[in-house]
């Protein structure tokens, strides 16, 4: 895929303070066409705040953000035409059905006549809302609303999509479908910024993720890059034949091992080093004459990576 000269989304030293609360502090990153960019952080990390700034609903205290090269401060009108924003709430109208809802936003984005009908048709098909066309939107379930919300976001075929926790409230099947939809959007050449609390949820579909906390970027890169940098230690479980105490003493002399504990014959410890170092450790243990009956190392899950990178502070 040919990358355009400029990124479709760019944050340039973005700051947003609410009084003394620093919701966003000095954030910079870029997202190019065809990329899905995951935005991960705990509650109050500043995800929604920065997304709202990108969607021209709020203004930065300092710094600027650009969508397709247009500043969100100076040219919000131009930004709006090429951006679809799916907020973490659903805006509902009384006495309106699914089709009319989409029709209204299609009109609001300046789609006319045949073009509009086509847009509504393809969006309803994409989000699988065809069968609900006549259903009043007040009566939709949470998952249906999420779909409709996504449909509304893409009605004007924007080049940039900003989705704030789109998977919240979806059942497992719907989550999988959502992931498929998002991957599909990326192959259509759109830049997608998507937020979530859960790294695992995004790991498969994101080309890049950013982990943020208290308004700061803690790590940016592909999921592998991030887990590599944080995967310096792992949990190891051992079971021996006979007395554990010599083993514990033997471990105590090594400086790559910590947190050794014994619990009903089961030794658990934390080992610094990658998988190769672990294989070496096992060989050394056996060569030292210990009778190992069980050796298991727990690979750090993405959850652990997330917990490792963030500190769980809430503003």
């Amino acid at each position: 895929m040919i990358k355009p000269r400029h990124p479709l989304i760019e944050l340039r030293r973005l700051h947003r303070y609410f009084g003394t609360t620093r919701a966003v502090q000095d954030m910079s990153f870029e997202v190019y066409s065809g990329e899905v960019f995951g935005y991960i952080g705990p509650n109050g990390a500043g995800k929604t705040t920065s997304m709202r700034i990108l969607a021209t609903l709020d203004e930065p205290t300092a710094g600027d953000a650009f969508v397709d090269g247009f500043s969100v401060i100076d040219d919000p009108d131009r930004v709006r035409r090429r951006l679809g924003f799916m907020p973490d709430y659903f805006g509902t109208y009384q006495n309106v059905n699914v089709r009319e809802y989409l029709d209204f936003f299609a009109r609001a984005y300046g789609l006319r006549g045949h073009e509009r009908k086509q847009a509504i048709g393809s969006v309803m098909e994409f989000t699988m809302l065809d069968k609900l066309a006549k259903k009043p939107i007040d009566g939709l379930s949470k998952g249906m609303k999420q779909r409709l919300c996504l449909g509304r976001t893409m009605i004007h075929d924007p080049a940039v999509l900003i989705l704030d926790e789109p998977a919240a409230g979806l059942d497992p099947r719907a989550r999988i479908e959502l992931r498929e939809m998002i991957s599909q959007l990326a192959t259509m050449g759109k830049a997608v910024l998507i937020s979530s609390h859960i790294l695992t949820e995004l790991a498969e579909i994101c080309d890049k993720v950013a982990i943020i906390e208290t308004g700061r970027l803690l790590a940016v890169g592909t999921v592998d890059e991030i887990s590599e940098t944080s995967e310096t230690s792992s949990h190891v479980r051992l079971r021996l034949l006979g007395n554990e105490q010599p083993m514990v003493d033997w471990f105590a002399k090594r400086n790559d091992i910590s947190n050794v504990s014994v619990n009903v014959g089961l030794i658990t410890l934390t080992h610094e080093g990658g998988q190769e170092a672990q294989a070496l450790l096992l060989r050394e243990v056996i060569e030292a004459g210990f009778q190992v009956v069980e050796f298991a190392s727990k690979q750090k899950s993405l959850e652990d990576v997330f917990l490792h990178v963030t500190e769980g502070k809430i503003q």
């Binding site: 609903l57 907020p87 709430y89 805006g91 936003f105 609001a108 004007h156």
Partner: peptide, 16 residues
């Protein structure tokens, strides 16, 4: 009502 039902923001970022 647009503000109470959260539609105002959606409207304001449209091309209108």
């Amino acid at each position: 009502v647009e503000q109470e039902d959260n539609t105002y923001e959606l409207l304001s970022i449209s091309a209108l």
